[in-house]
Design a protein around this nucleic acid. Structure first.
Lengths: 191, 191
DNA sequence: CGAGTTTTAGACCTACAGTTCAAGAAAGGT
DNA sequence: ACCTTTCTTGAACTGTAGGTCTAAAACTCG
């Protein structure tokens, strides 16, 4: 009952996410969000309560998309090293292909908000842990398949990969592909 | 001639830098800057022209301090690996010791402003290149001293170290020392 | 000491951020 | 046909961002 919502929440969230991702949380105004989503300010507030709540839902959506992407990338054929190299290069390529460089929404948010909001910090940490989990799973698969030395600490190496990726997405703000590719190769040299 | 400035520019820049570093560029208002520096808004604008110009001078100061720090840390005794491990752990320790996590001003600024301001992006890139240069110098010293394999590409490895550090300072927003130390050890395993 | 210059503090200004509200519109229930 | 509910939008509102201006104050120099 009641008048039905005239827009698709997920479409609006997706567009809002792009705006936040490109401009950062503080630098994205309600007016920009209204323009980006095609929904009037009032409706946005009715549907999502506050700028902060909307942002957190955008974060969730981003995380969901990351997981889908990771699942695909880490199934790439070839050795563990080739697969991880491919996955990292894919992310870098996608970052560089954007008209405006914008890094990783999770990393950017960690830098912008984790220091002031412990709730957001915890949420980000859970998301990062999941990414680390994806890397660990792929490394362990490599170990089972004899591709990766048994004595490698998969957890530690996965954390290293997650860290490398976090770094790459910052470095991609100011660097070009060749340097980023070299970094990937060096980070994977142990495999 | 004329009334002399009643404050020390460098002290004011240093305090303004802390404010920008803790809160980010967009989230630091002129009022906060006045409070942090102890100088009235009007005087700040008279002395530094604009919030942006003040910020850029803070960036320069930060970079200067980084260089001083790097010079000290990379002179630490021991093998190249020990020295680099010590240097990276020192930075991480210092990040974690802050009452509010705040990452690296250069990396944070890359994320916040490089996408919208090519001038800032270029400046940040020059600063990052200098940091990479410090790492390269230490690795090459290791090669001269027989500490590091001759066939290691010092430039590529230095970029990898700079990237690892950039990542660490993002990860330090949400992680604790043990994971960060493990990342350092893994990143240095090639030495 | 007076002229000329620069700094200072804070009042002042315009625009917009973030949010709420009022009035109408589109459903379902009765 | 009406009532209730939830949605829609644009206007309205409060506070602050970012910056300017001014009158007084603090110096240097001649």
């Amino acid at each position: 009952m009641g008048r039905p919502r005239s827009f698709d929440d997920n479409v609006v969230l997706s567009r809002a996410m792009e705006a936040f991702w490109t401009n950062g949380y503080a630098d994205t105004s309600p007016a920009q969000l209204a323009e980006a989503t095609g929904v009037a300010k009032g409706s946005l507030y009715n549907a999502f309560r506050s700028k902060r709540a909307l942002f957190e839902r955008c974060l969730d959506l981003y995380h969901q998309q990351i997981n889908k992407l990771a699942e695909g990338l880490l199934e790439h054929p070839g050795s563990t090293r080739e697969c991880l190299g491919y996955a990292l290069r894919s992310v870098v390529d996608s970052d560089l292909a954007q008209p405006r460089r914008r890094g990783c929404l999770i990393g950017n948010t960690a830098v912008e908000l984790a220091g002031q909001d412990p709730g957001v910090a915890k949420k980000l940490r859970r998301m990062q842990d999941e990414s680390t989990g994806w890397f660990a799973a792929r490394v362990e698969r490599g170990q089972r398949e004899g591709d990766v030395p048994r004595d490698l600490d998969s957890r530690a190496f996965a954390e290293h990969l997650a860290n490398t990726l976090a770094g790459l997405r910052v470095m991609a703000m100011t660097h070009e592909a060749p340097a980023l590719y070299r970094i990937i190769d060096t980070a994977l040299a142990a495999l």
